[in-house]
Amino acid sequence: MSQQVCHIKWNADGLIVDGQQADLLPHEGGLKELLAAYYKSLGLNYPKFHKMDNLSKLGVLGVAMLSAQYDLSAYADDAIAMHFQNASASLDTDWVHQQNINEGKAASPANFVYTLPNIVLGEIAIRNKWYGENLFVVADSFDLERWMKTNQVLFDQNKAEAVLGGWVEVLEEKFELELYFVVKQ
């Protein structure tokens, strides 16, 4: 069995952290600027953040918000598994690389390294020094039941004490994060 201890839902309509609804932070511009506003308000001192694609930024910020709610440092560095789903994989970033190819320009290595959906897991792992399991699944929409079922497999086999993840989706200006933290009972 497992217990859900923290839930974050974040999209254009607002931010809900454990049932507490808040308006989005004021910002000028689009998603990039919105994410930058949260970076500032969370007081993250992590210049590498600015090099990430929006998908990775969204995931890293979500986990930072969750860490502010719930003490994750009590877990061993390989005890938290990460398990995410989304629909568009890394299409938002793939498109930039594809455009470079289409237009015959030199590919940007800094862009290419984000053309995989699981890089967001890598970025979260690097920032938090987590060596646990990572899984990234592509699905039409967030399937909470399947997500929990897969987590149960991890818990049953003593592979993780907690699972962090859910849905992390970015395509152009549209974004949606649904982040859960569940612990083994």
Partner: peptide
């Protein structure tokens, strides 16, 4: 499965 938690 494990994460190397080092670089993209």
């Amino acid at each position: 499965n494990a994460n190397d938690a080092y670089h993209q």
